[in-house]
Simulated assay, not measured.
Amino acid sequence: MDYNELKILFQKYQEGKITREEFYLLQKQVNMHSDKTLQPIFEKQWEQFEEYIPLSSDKQEMLYTRILSSRDLPKGGYYRNWWIRIAASILILFTMGWAFSLYNENQQMQQLTERNVVIKAGDSPSSIILPDGTNVKLNSYSSLSYRSDFGVKARTVSLSGEGYFEVKRDETRQFVVKTNHIDTKVLGTKFNVHAYEDEDFLEMALLEGSVQVNTIKSPYRSLVVKPKEKVVYNKAEDELILKVSDNDIETAWLSDILIFQHDTLRYVLDCLERKYRVTFHVEDDILLSDIYTGAFDEKDIIDILEILKIHYHFDYVKEDSNIYLKARTEP
C-alpha cells in the first residue's frame, strides 16, 4: 500500500466513513509502515483534533520513555515532542477506533433488530403463530408485519387487510395491532380487525377480554371495548363509533362464509372481488346503491352471480377475471 492509499484510509477514518475491513487494514498498515512514512500523516491527524484533552506530563514522560526503550532514537527536543504527539495521535486513533468498532457492531445489531418480518396471505386465509405464542389468522390478500425483536420488549404488529387474533396473555407486555388509522391495545384476548386500505371504514370486533382502541391522528379519541361490541372507524368522516355486535358476521370469513346484512350491492361486489380475484364492471351505477342481506358459502363466483341476478335483474358476462354487469331491460 502506498502513501496516498494510506492517506485515503486516514481521511475516511476522520470523516467517519471507514468500513470495518478498512479500519482493520489501517491498523495493520500503521504497524507495518516506517516512522518516516507515518510522520506527515500523523501530524495531519494531530491537527484534526484541536480540542483534544492534553495528556498529563507524567503520562507524556511514560509514553516517551516506553517509545525510547523500544526504538533507537536521538533524545533531542524535536524528536521528543514529535513522538509524544505521535503517541497521543495513536491513542486518539485507536481509542476512537475501538469505539468505532463497537459502534459499528451495535449499529449492525440495531439494524438486524429493526428489520421487519412480513407475512402475506394469498388467495386463501393463512394461519400464523407469532413468537410470543399468539395465534393469527389472516384473511385473503392481507398482510402482517412485525420487527424481528418482537416480544423482547414490545409486542407490536402492523396489519393491512383483515386478521383474527387470539393473543397470548402477558401482563408485562401489551399487544398492539397498528393500522393506518387506529391502534388496538390488549394484554390477552380474541378479536377481529378489518382494515383494508381500499375501503371507507375499519372495524375491530371483540370476542373475549377487553381492549382499548385509539385513533392515531388528532383529534385523538379512545374507546374501551367489551365482548360482543365492535368499533367502527369511518375514514371519510373521521368518526369512531362503538356498536353492539354478536360477532357472527365479523368472523364469518373464518369459516369461508360471506355474510351481508343491509349492505349495498357495491360493498357486496367489493367483497366478492377480493375473495374471488375478479373485477366487476357495472354499466348502471343505480344498481350499486341497492341493499342486500344474505350469506354465500359457494366456491364458484358463477353460482353467486346466479343468485344475485335473480334479486337485481341484471345480466352478466364473464371474460377471464373481468365480469360485466348490465341491468336487464324489462319487456
Score class of each variant (00 low, 15 high):
172 T>F: 12
27 Q>G: 10
152 V>S: 14
56 S>D: 12
97 G>R: 05
209 G>N: 14
44 K>E: 12
303 D>E: 12
75 K>I: 15
128 I>A: 00
9 L>F: 04
61 E>M: 05
3 Y>E: 11
98 W>G: 07
191 F>Q: 10
243 K>T: 15
205 A>L: 03
137 K>L: 01
58 D>E: 03
14 Q>P: 00
52 Y>G: 03
5 E>I: 04
148 S>D: 09
310 I>Q: 07
144 L>D: 04
308 L>R: 11
147 R>C: 03
92 I>E: 06
226 K>V: 01
275 K>Q: 12
64 Y>I: 05
128 I>M: 00
286 I>D: 10
23 F>H: 07
229 E>N: 07
168 K>G: 02
211 V>S: 08
138 L>E: 04
115 R>Q: 15
74 P>H: 08
66 R>I: 13
311 H>M: 12
316 Y>A: 09
266 R>L: 09
328 R>V: 15
249 I>V: 09
25 L>C: 05
214 N>E: 09
275 K>D: 11
15 E>Q: 11
272 L>G: 06
310 I>C: 08
212 Q>A: 11
90 I>K: 12
271 C>R: 10
19 T>S: 15
241 I>N: 15
139 N>T: 14
96 M>A: 04
209 G>L: 05
113 T>R: 14
321 S>I: 02
77 G>L: 15
139 N>M: 00
86 I>G: 02
264 T>M: 10
28 K>V: 13
107 Q>Y: 07
7 K>P: 02
146 Y>T: 08
277 R>V: 01
7 K>I: 05
142 S>E: 09
56 S>I: 00
10 F>G: 01
94 F>R: 03
217 K>P: 05
274 R>D: 00
88 A>W: 05
114 E>I: 02
42 F>G: 00
312 Y>Q: 08
261 Q>P: 02
172 T>Y: 09
194 H>N: 11
196 Y>P: 08
86 I>H: 13
175 F>M: 08
309 K>A: 03
69 S>E: 11
67 I>P: 10
38 L>Q: 10
86 I>E: 06
140 S>C: 02
69 S>H: 15
84 I>W: 04
264 T>R: 09
220 Y>V: 00
120 K>M: 07
288 L>N: 04
